[in-house]
Design a protein around this nucleic acid. Structure first.
Lengths: 209, 209
DNA sequence: CCATTACGCTACGACTCGTAGCGAAAGCTC
DNA sequence: GAGCTTTCGCTACGAGTCGTAGCGTAATGG
């Protein structure tokens, strides 16, 4: 989770473990109050009660710090077992929407994604910390639905991987766009409509190649 | 398109009309070379061959300037008439993907959307300049498909509006997520798969309420 | 006790921001 | 052409942030 995790040495004064949590919490607090553009590392350091230099010793810069601070928000994502694929999808999408409704997630996530366009290392960091963790939910959900018989077992593994990627882009993209661009809540009614379209599209697409 | 369009006065020295175009072009050029975070208004002014003060007289700040610069990229979006709804959708999605593949669009769009979270006026500006212009394509496409008989005529206008919003969030969100977060090209193969899922989902959803 | 590392603090040059003030330029009306 | 109005280019400025260097001190392990 930390920036470098510089192979914890056996000798020397150990890092203050509480400082990491305090800094990340202070970062989220600053994101809520100030937003991305007005957030400064000096301000975060003051909120966390550490020196600015300590912050720079642990993180390379604002981008990396905010990625870690936002990534913690997505740790609470779980795949519920509600009995049917539709209900499972609705549940996880609602969780995702609830996280994205929080101002610290909105402010931070889009900004670091924008920065990642010109920073491959940052994009990889985002992928590891945030994106891949959600994609696992799609994989689990599909496997569970196949066990239930709600989805046909995949034959071509390459095709299956492409389908998972497609689903992920559609789900995450739609919720993000609804929440951040359209600025409308992804509430239960919207999620229900969206899930119906997605499920019909997927079952139909696999039936008629 | 300009920032203020301050009710063009009949008296006084008129604004240099070419300066606007030069500034917006310089902004896109700087977005490509520097990206959002390293783009400075002083640099843009130098590229455009105008004084920095002139730039501040026409735009309130970096956000508004970049919105206008990016908005021009979306002016070329057209709804092709390829005979079928599926082909029409594929065509417009491919155009959208082509625009988003350009680095000036990537760098600028996500950044201003991120900023718009804490700036309602900026979000409204984005909506007017970029979002609503695309949403019109969805409306036209649906109307055309209904004339062809590919989609049933809508009964409840409120329900129809919600459906259009849903389609728009799904299409734009999926393409943006694919291009910017997954960092994979939205090429013909992907667009074909996506369109199939979307169409099956929509026709099925309207058949079975 | 000593080597090693982390920490808090101060200070620093470099950079960007957004604005103010100035004289000159370019249009309109009379 | 005279006079008015607005824009333009230029310079300068205080304020704020960045990221780093240097220093003395604190906290571990050998």
């Amino acid at each position: 989770m930390q920036s470098r995790t510089p192979a914890p040495r056996a000798t020397g004064r150990p890092r203050n473990a509480k400082a990491d949590a305090a800094i990340l919490a202070a970062t989220r607090e600053a994101l809520v109050e100030l937003g991305w553009s007005k957030l400064t590392l000096g301000d975060v350091a003051m909120r966390a009660g550490v020196a600015k230099t300590t912050l720079y010793r642990r993180w390379a810069g604002k981008n990396e710090l905010v990625v870690d601070a936002v990534a913690e928000l997505f740790d609470e994502l779980r795949l519920p077992d509600r009995g049917t694929l539709a209900a499972d999808i609705e549940g996880v999408v609602l969780q995702f929407a609830a996280i994205l409704a929080r101002p610290e997630a909105k402010s931070g996530l889009m900004a670091v994604v924008a920065e990642s366009i010109r920073d491959d290392a940052l994009r990889e960091r985002i992928r590891e910390s945030i994106v891949d963790r959600q994609k696992r939910l799609v994989l689990e959900g599909r496997a569970r639905a196949q066990r239930r018989g709600e989805l046909p077992a995949e034959t071509d593994p390459g095709e299956a991987a492409r389908t998972v990627d497609l689903i992920f882009d559609v789900v995450a993209g739609a919720v993000v766009h609804r929440t951040l661009v359209s600025a409308e809540p992804a509430d239960e009614e919207w999620v229900r409509s969206f899930t119906r379209v997605l499920l019909l599209g997927l079952s139909g697409a696999s039936q008629a190649p």
